[in-house]
C-alpha cells in the first residue's frame, strides 16, 4: 500500500519536501510520502483509515492514541510518522483475526470494560504491552500499567477486570 499524504494544513514558511517512510502496520508493509511534521496518529487515522487509534487530548496526556511500536506502548500523537521508518506498528485493528476477537477484546466485552469506548483502543494496546511483559499481573500491576490511559466513563474497575479476564484466557490458551 502506498499513501501520499498532503493534508497537514496551511502553513507559512518554506515548503519542506515530503519524505518516504516504510512501516509495517499490523503485519502489512506500508509506504507513505509524508511531511516530517505529520504525527504517527494522523498517518494511521487519516492516511490509512485505521480510525481505531483515537486522538483525545492531543497533548500527550490521555493515552487514547496508544499503539505498539516494536512492541512498546507509546502515544502516537507524540511521535512523528517519519520516526516509524523500518518499525513494526500494531494498532487495535491488529488484535483480532479474521474469525476471532483477541482475548483482550473478549475480556472488555465480558466484563463491560467500556462505556463510550473512546479510551478503549488505547487501553487495550497498553494492556497488550503489559500482558506481553507480565502474563500474570495482579490488579495493582494492571492499574499501574494502565496509569497513562485516562477513562472518563468507567471508573476503571471494569477495565481492570477485563484485563484480568484476558490474562487468564491467554494463560489458559498458552497452557493448552
Amino acid at each position: 500500500m502506498t499513501i501520499i499524504y498532503e493534508e497537514t494544513g496551511a502553513e507559512g514558511g518554506p515548503e519542506i519536501p515530503q519524505q518516504r517512510v516504510t512501516i509495517r502496520v499490523n503485519g502489512r508493509k506500508v509506504i507513505a510520502e509524508v511531511e516530517p511534521r505529520l504525527l504517527l496518529a494522523h498517518l494511521l487515522r487519516h492516511g490509512m483509515g485505521l480510525t481505531g487509534t483515537h486522538t483525545g487530548c492531543d497533548t500527550t496526556n490521555c493515552g487514547a492514541c496508544t499503539v505498539l511500536v516494536d512492541g512498546r506502548a507509546v502515544k502516537s500523537c507524540t511521535m512523528f510518522a517519519v520516526q516509524a521508518e523500518g518499525r513494526e506498528v500494531t494498532t487495535v485493528e491488529g488484535l483480532a483475526t479474521q474469525s476471532e476477537l483477541h482475548p483482550l477484546q473478549e475480556g472488555f466485552k465480558e466484563e463491560h470494560g467500556l462505556q463510550c469506548g473512546f479510551c478503549t483502543p488505547g487501553m487495550m494496546m497498553a494492556a497488550k504491552a503489559l500482558l506481553d511483559r507480565n502474563p500474570d499481573p495482579t490488579e495493582e500491576d494492571i492499574r499501574w500499567g494502565l496509569s497513562g490511559n485516562l477513562c472518563r466513563c468507567t471508573g476503571y474497575q471494569n477495565i481492570v477486570k477485563s484485563v484480568l479476564w484476558a490474562a487468564e484466557k491467554l494463560r489458559s490458551q498458552s497452557a493448552g
Partner: peptide, 11 residues
C-alpha cells in the same frame, strides 16, 4: 495540532 514545518534527519 501540528508543529510548524521542519526538516528531519535520522542520523
Amino acid at each position: 495540532m501540528y508543529p510548524s514545518r521542519f526538516r528531519y534527519e535520522a542520523a
